Simulated assay, not measured.
Amino acid sequence: MTLEILRSDLLGEVPHGFFTRRGGASSGVFAGLNCGTGSSDQCEAVATNRARVAEAMGGPLHGVHQVHSAEVVVVDGAEQTPRPKADAMVTTRPGAVLTILTADCQPVLFHDPEAGVIGAAHAGWKGALGGVLEATVDAMVRLGAQRDRIRAAIGPSISQRAYEVGPEFLDTFLAEDDEAMRFFANGQDGRYQFDLVGYGLHRLRRAGVEAEWTGHCTYSDPARFYSYRRTTHAGEADYGRLISAIRL
């Protein structure tokens, strides 16, 4: 099956893509393009999937050991082994392919076309609240980018209608960001629905960056996307990871 790659018009002609699960070699609960080396999928299948992505992107893949932080790595050579613990990468190196793995969290790809700087960030609720998006923008600026030229696209992520949280979750956000209340809608039994993507767009735009979401919900489309929350609700043992990539 052919790989399915979603793209953002906002990022223009820079090679990039939010890969769905279609076109991969994995089977079972991982069926499709599972690129998560930390999953319990067969190593050979994951390696095959990642090789297909590398071929589609035209270069070797760079990644980090994602830990829901605001840490950003500058890619200026071969991929580090072991992968550094971080949740974003930036580079000016031609041919470098920056990748992020997600399964409900926001994959965010960045580009300043004039400066020749790209970035990629993994922004779940912890990372977004902790400032990983702003940290990525700051790192790009240090490499020569300008905020008003940076464009950012958020790929497939869990949507508000599928993201139910408790009152303690809301309290955590309000303790750190008094503008966050508008991203919570009332749910059932005293719970709330959190708009992760809306919050990500808010943080990006507040940082001076033009941004958009591709409009795809990971939870609601099992044929195309992996979802940690959907897997949890289904009682499955593990889940696949989607990959998003950008190359200079």
Rank of each mutant, 00 (worst) to 15 (best):
G119H: 06
A51V: 04
S39Y: 03
V141M: 13
E114C: 01
H216T: 04
F18V: 03
D41E: 15
G32V: 12
G12R: 03
V74F: 02
Y219A: 02
L129M: 13
S157V: 07
I118C: 03
A139I: 04
S8D: 02
Q42D: 15
D112A: 06
D148E: 15
G58A: 12
A223G: 07
R151N: 05
A139F: 01
N49W: 10
A123P: 11
D76F: 00
F30D: 07
A152Y: 06
L204K: 05
Q66C: 05
F19M: 00
C217I: 00
A121H: 12
R203D: 02
K126P: 01
A121D: 07
F184H: 12
L170E: 13
T99G: 05
R93T: 13
R7Y: 00
G240C: 09
A223M: 11
L170A: 11
R161N: 14
G63H: 02
L242D: 08
T214S: 10
G130M: 05
T91M: 10
V14E: 01
P222T: 10
G235Q: 09
G130F: 02
E164A: 14
M89K: 08
S159Y: 04
L174N: 06
D189C: 04
D221K: 11
A162H: 15
N186T: 11
L201K: 03
F184C: 07
L98I: 08
M140S: 07
E210A: 15
F225N: 03
V117M: 08
S40K: 12
L10T: 09
C43I: 13
P15H: 11
M181A: 15
F18G: 01
V108Y: 00
A207R: 08
